[in-house]
Write a protein that binds this DNA or RNA. Sequence first.
DNA 1: TTCATTTGACCAGT
DNA 2: ACTGGTCAAATGAA
Length: 335
Amino acid sequence: MEKTMDWEQNTLLNELTQGRDFTNMLRKHLHPSSSPETRQVLLDKILCSYDKALSLLNCSGYMVETKPRVSTLGSPESDASDKKDMFKKRKTSSGWSEQIRVCSATSLEGPLDDGYCWRKYGQKDILGSNFPRGYYRCTHRYSQGCLAGKQIQRSDEDPTIFEVKYRGRHTCNQVSHLVATPKEKGNHYREKQQVEEKQKQSEEMLLSFETELKVNTEDLDKRENIFPSFSFPIESEEVQNGLLRNSLMKNISPAFVSPATSESNYFSVSAFQMGSFDFSQNVQTSESELTEIISAPASVTNSPIVDLDISSLEKLEFDQSFPFDNPEFFTNFLQ
DNA sequence: TTCATTTGACCAGT
DNA sequence: ACTGGTCAAATGAA
């Protein structure tokens, strides 16, 4: 525990130091002869350092005001006490997100891959539950200071369903897991080709996903806790008019096209695989809290028609460089 | 040899 | 005292 605290403080210190260094560099580049791109990059890095530092503090249970605070005059004593309280022991069992229920198509295997690399650090029998709860943290916790974590527990009512809770945000570089997942170690060239191929398929699927998805923004806001960077920035007329959709339907199996029910609180998303993790989902909002249900009917995921493995989709989801805002992407795609 | 998982022990909160 | 969350040594897999 002490070790963890030291590590967190070191990481925090590193982030802040890095931020200061980048700020200094930015100051040097304020000269008009310096390129705006460089300034932008430095600015991004500074913001990234701030984000990570704040995330470290928040995820560690230290309440951090994100709004700038006007310093009060006088009372240095109170400042000192604030500092003292700042690193008090975190509360346990706080900060876990709402539960997600994941149905594994292979039933006996767990919901293995949600796109991130997780490392199991514990398992616990839970009172009143038939199945133990597994505790996972991001693989990049120590290498990149990513404090995201999750719990997985098999449901009592339906053992094929896994209840997953997430905590914290991923601040790690998500590209790294794209290249170096355990499955993909080894033949790099071939794997790279496969990844590229899958990525191409994923782009198609993602568009299908977008066209099928009818969700109000409130739901999206809530889901941000779990998949923080998950968004669909496209709002093109082509999509709305169904042109893009029709185009997509030529290439994509009808099995992916499930009707979205607009009148209920459910929305349905076409079934597809995310690696070994079946990620078709039905999402339902309850009165008190948002409960997310992610389920994958085996009949669909095991369909011989639907044999697309788009394990790299999650990579796209979090890839900010994905050319949503590039009209050429869609033009090329439609041809 | 390295890295991930397992599992009993430990700790903090209630 | 009980429980959930985490640690870390032991173990296993690649």
